[in-house]
Simulated assay, not measured.
Amino acid sequence: MNPISSLVFVLLLTVFPTQILCQTALIEEACGYTIYKVLCLETLVPDSEAHSAKELKTLAQVSLKHTEYEANIVDSNIEGLKESSGRGPVRHALVNCSNKFIVVIEKIQAAETSFSQGNVTAAKARLTEATVNRQLCDKGFEGKRSKSPISDWTTKLSQMQNNAESIIYHIQP
């Protein structure tokens, strides 16, 4: 290897890890604001948009995008359970949840739009509305003989939304 090639190789080794660490540092900072740090890291670290982020606002947008994606997964799972369940109180609760999750997804999407337009107050209000509808879904299973078949999914969604809200809260105007 000639001296110039060696120099380029050494520079590449020193420059790219630094860039990666800097981008990871911003993700670490953002996730440090959250209660569910491990979930935050699991969500943001593999995301290419998060890695190219230069500011917390971008990470908040990415976190909201993943929250919406998770809400869509929960909604699909509810639909699947609803279709496979028989008559009875659990099916009734699933039908109610299906209706509530349409609103949950709409409110998260509205929060994304408001946030991207710089209206943090409206974004927070839409996320609160999403939370209320998600909680109404969960309450539909209270008092049933069996455990809610969706509680693990709605818990994860709640945690992801909480993480997004925590990052949003720490953005400087």
Rank of each mutant, 00 (worst) to 15 (best):
C97H: 04
A25R: 14
I78D: 02
R126T: 04
T155R: 11
Q19K: 09
I105H: 15
E49T: 11
E79G: 08
P89Q: 12
Y169T: 06
L64P: 15
Y33P: 01
L81D: 13
A122F: 06
K54H: 04
Q23H: 10
M160T: 06
E142V: 02
F16D: 05
I27T: 07
N163V: 09
I105G: 13
S151I: 05
P46Q: 08
K139Q: 14
S146W: 04
V120E: 15
V90C: 03
L44A: 12
L94F: 02
Y169P: 01
F115T: 13
P17L: 04
H92G: 03
G118P: 08
Q159G: 02
T43D: 15
G140K: 07
I171S: 14
L59I: 08
H51A: 11
P173S: 06
R134G: 01
K156F: 00
E68T: 10
S63Y: 09
E29K: 11
Q117G: 05
Y36W: 02
C137V: 07
S5T: 07
A164C: 05
F9P: 03
R87V: 08
E49Y: 06
N99F: 01
N133V: 00
K144P: 00
P173I: 01
C137W: 05
L56Q: 09
T58I: 06
L81R: 14
G80E: 08
H170L: 01
V103M: 12
K82M: 04
V45P: 10
I167M: 05
I171T: 14
Y69N: 06
K100E: 14
S151R: 12
L127V: 02
M1P: 14
S76K: 07
M1G: 15
N133Y: 00
E112Y: 00
P17V: 00
L81K: 13
I167A: 08
S84P: 02
G86K: 09
I105N: 15
S5Y: 06
I102W: 08
T34I: 03
K124P: 03
A25D: 14
H170V: 02
A122P: 10
M1E: 14
S76Y: 03
R91K: 04
I150F: 00
A25G: 15
K156V: 05
F101L: 08
S158T: 13
T131I: 04
A125K: 10
P46Y: 07
Q117N: 12
L81N: 13
S63V: 05
S114E: 13
S166F: 03
S6L: 11
A111Q: 10
V90L: 03
